[in-house]
Amino acid sequence: MTGRRRFLRNLGLAASGAFLAGCDRISQSESGARVLESAEWLTRRVQRIVSPSTALAREFSEADISPVFRPNGTTMPQTALYQSLMKNQFRDYRLGVEGLVDHPGEFSIDQLRALGERTQITRHDCVEGWSAIGKWQGTPLGALLAHVGVKESARYVVFHCFDEWGEDTPYYESIDITEARHPQTLLAHSLNGAPLPVANGAPLRLRVERQLGYKHAKYLRSIEVVSSFEDIGDGNGGYWEDNGYEWYAGI
């Protein structure tokens, strides 16, 4: 490398370094991060106007199904409770339903299936950038909510999961009531015609087709209907949300 080229290269690196250092200060300051986060509110507002809450995610044909549905995040929950349920092929599994509902209770997969069934072939989009297509079968969450009766003050549905991400940090997620009642929002028990594999969230996982993968909570333990999720986890509405990701994952 000639002296001139080295000089130009170092000049470029110094410029990018100074620019990145400035940006890092914004990322790490509370007010700077809050300004950047304001875009999420705008995106959510605008997307809800141009893409109505009733709009359906595209459904695909059998031929489009991905050869392997890539699992991500936890692929084998280690908690004792989950391990004991798994040993028994989830025969003793019950989904808890609690919070702002008229009739809290516990539901087996068969009881859920009796409330309604839907099959859909949809595309799953991970926040990382990849996509996979799978066939999901499950109970529309709206049918379960109608069955247990939702109180007027309810605004969100929170999903509590079996898998832990560090000590006393179970995975959780939340969506609003409108999204929860969307016809494609399912409590899925089957993938590609077979019971959900453990890696993909057995025995029951959420499908919320118009949002990114981290919203699709796996290993559902219970659902809780709430008016606010401020007191759950770090208060941002989900495990990844507590780690800086957007609560609204429609983009």
Partner: peptide, 15 residues
């Protein structure tokens, strides 16, 4: 926008 799952519910033709 074509990468946005929410937008794809209305932009399917473009995708």
């Amino acid at each position: 926008l074509a990468m946005s799952p929410r937008m794809d519910a209305v932009l399917g033709w473009m995708v």
